[in-house]
């Protein structure tokens, strides 16, 4: 935690904003449910780490509850969900709904195999962005940073 020393800063909101701006973006990476394809998630974890983000890697077989718990405990800015089993239309909206139900504002970014025709439905469901195969390291880091920035406005 690198916030300003107590009593030296201005109003509460400004101090809050400042604290966030100076901290690296924190992202929770996880797979929901049974899908065991974790190659992509591990590569993304290293890409983000190398780009200077803080990665909380939960890995396989997580539930919306275990992800939310990590988000709260780690004060994470973004949730990265990797989905390679065709279940994105079920799993991703469920994660978004769970975040909202918990009263949190934490954008969900989806990575994996998502056919183009499903992109609109995921956007309508509140998914911040979808990163498909071939997304570069720079695109991945930019997208997660943009998601974190969206949260902080």
């Amino acid at each position: 935690m690198t916030g300003p020393a107590a009593g030296t800063a201005g109003p509460q909101a400004e101090r809050h904003h400042d604290r966030h701006r100076r901290q690296p973006v924190r992202v929770v990476l996880a797979k929901l449910g049974l899908d065991g394809h974790d190659r992509g998630l591990k590569v993304v974890a290293r890409m983000l780490r190398d780009a200077g983000l803080e990665v909380i890697y939960l890995g396989l077989r997580q539930t919306t509850e275990s992800i939310l718990l990590a988000v709260e405990q780690e004060d994470a800015d973004v949730i990265g969900l990797s989905i390679h089993n065709g279940g994105h239309l079920t799993l991703a909206p469920r994660m978004v709904d769970a975040v909202r139900a918990a009263g949190l504002v934490v954008p969900v970014v989806v990575g994996g195999i998502v056919p183009d025709v499903d992109l609109e439905r995921l956007a309508e469901a509140g998914v911040f962005a979808v990163l498909g195969p071939g997304a570069s390291a720079a695109e991945v880091a930019e997208t997660v940073r943009a998601a974190a920035a969206a949260r902080r406005i």
């Binding site: 449910g33 049974l34 899908d35 065991g36 089993n85 065709g86 279940g87 239309l89 079920t90 799993l91």
Partner: peptide, 22 residues
Amino acid sequence: DMPTLMGRDSDHPWAVGEVGRA
């Protein structure tokens, strides 16, 4: 499918959205 590979029945809570999918 993934629930079968993981030894879970189609009506297991983990199986939602994955039945017959892959």
